[in-house]
C-alpha cells in the first residue's frame, strides 16, 4: 500500500501562505506544518505575520520551534509582545533564500492579510501555495456563501489567489471524528463551488486513526494550548 502521508506536505512547494478567517486554526496549522517540513529534513522558517491578534501567536512557540530546527521570523525583543503591526525585517530572507522552505502565518480576515500585501508582487513569481484554512464552527464559515465571501475578501486585500483549502473544522477540545467528517464534506462543497482543491484535512493526532480514509490527512499535535489543558507544557 502506498504511503499517502508521504505526499503531504507537497515536495514541490517552497512557500506556503496560510490565511483564513479569525479562529480558523491558522496558527496551529502553521506551527504543525513548519515542524512537519523540518522533520522531513527541509531547512524551514516560520514567519509570524499576525498583526491582528495580541495573544496565541506562533511566536509564543519560539522555544519549541528553535528546538526542532525551525527558524522563527517574528518581531523581536519588546516588540514580540506588542500590539503593533510590525513586519519583521528578515521576512525578505524567505523570498531570497531559495534553499529555505517558508510557512507564512497571517492574522485573520482581510485585516490580517494586509501584512503581506506589500510582498505579493515578489511572492507571485515564487508560485506559493496559498491555503485558506476552513473551520465550519466559526460564524464566518458557517455556510459556503459566507466562507467564499471571506476567502474572496482576504484574496482581494492580499493580491494573491488562493490555491487550496485546508479542511480544519474543529471545536478545540470538543472535536470528534463526526465533526471532522462534516467539515470535510463542507470543504468538498466549497471546493466544488470555487474550483479549488482540498490541500489536506488537518486533524488532531488522536483522531487520525478513525479518519484514515480522508486524504491527504495531516495529523497535528496541538501546540497552542492554555495553561489548564492537559497538554500544557510547563
Amino acid at each position: 500500500m502506498a504511503d499517502l502521508s508521504a505526499a503531504f506536505p507537497p515536495h514541490d512547494v517552497r512557500i506556503f501562505v496560510i490565511l483564513g478567517a479569525y479562529g480558523a486554526g491558522k496558527t496551529e496549522f502553521s506551527v504543525n506544518l513548519a515542524l512537519a517540513l523540518a522533520a522531513r529534513g527541509r531547512r524551514t522558517a516560520l514567519a509570524d505575520l499576525d498583526i491582528v491578534n495580541p495573544y496565541f501567536r506562533s511566536r509564543e512557540k519560539s522555544a519549541l520551534l528553535a528546538n526542532k530546527g525551525v527558524r522563527l521570523i517574528a518581531p523581536q525583543g519588546e516588540l514580540r509582545d506588542a500590539d503593533l503591526p510590525v513586519i519583521p525585517a528578515d521576512l525578505r530572507t524567505l523570498l531570497d533564500d531559495t534553499g529555505l522552505t517558508g510557512v507564512i502565518d497571517l492574522g485573520g480576515d482581510p485585516a490580517g492579510a494586509r501584512a503581506l500585501a506589500a510582498f505579493s508582487g515578489d511572492l507571485l513569481s515564487l508560485h506559493p501555495a496559498v491555503w485558506y484554512v476552513l473551520n465550519r464552527s466559526r460564524f464566518e464559515n458557517a455556510d459556503a456563501r459566507r466562507a467564499i465571501q471571506s476567502l474572496q475578501g482576504i484574496q482581494a486585500v492580499l493580491g494573491l489567489r488562493v490555491t487550496g483549502l485546508v479542511s480544519n473544522t474543529h471545536l478545540l477540545s470538543d472535536t470528534d471524528a463526526a465533526l471532522v467528517r462534516e467539515g470535510a464534506a463542507f470543504a468538498g462543497e466549497v471546493a466544488v463551488l470555487t474550483g479549488l482543491p482540498v490541500a489536506c484535512h488537518a486533524v488532531r493526532d488522536s483522531l487520525a486513526p478513525e479518519l484514515a480514509d480522508l486524504h491527504p490527512l495531516f495529523p497535528m499535535t496541538l501546540r497552542m494550548n492554555r495553561p489548564w489543558e492537559d497538554n500544557w507544557e510547563d
Binding site: Y22, G23, S137, R138, F139, A142, L171, D174
Partner: peptide, 10 residues
C-alpha cells in the same frame, strides 16, 4: 450545535 467563539466576540 456548538460554535467556536472568541471571548470578546461572544
Amino acid at each position: 450545535q456548538k460554535e467556536l467563539w472568541k471571548g470578546n466576540e461572544a
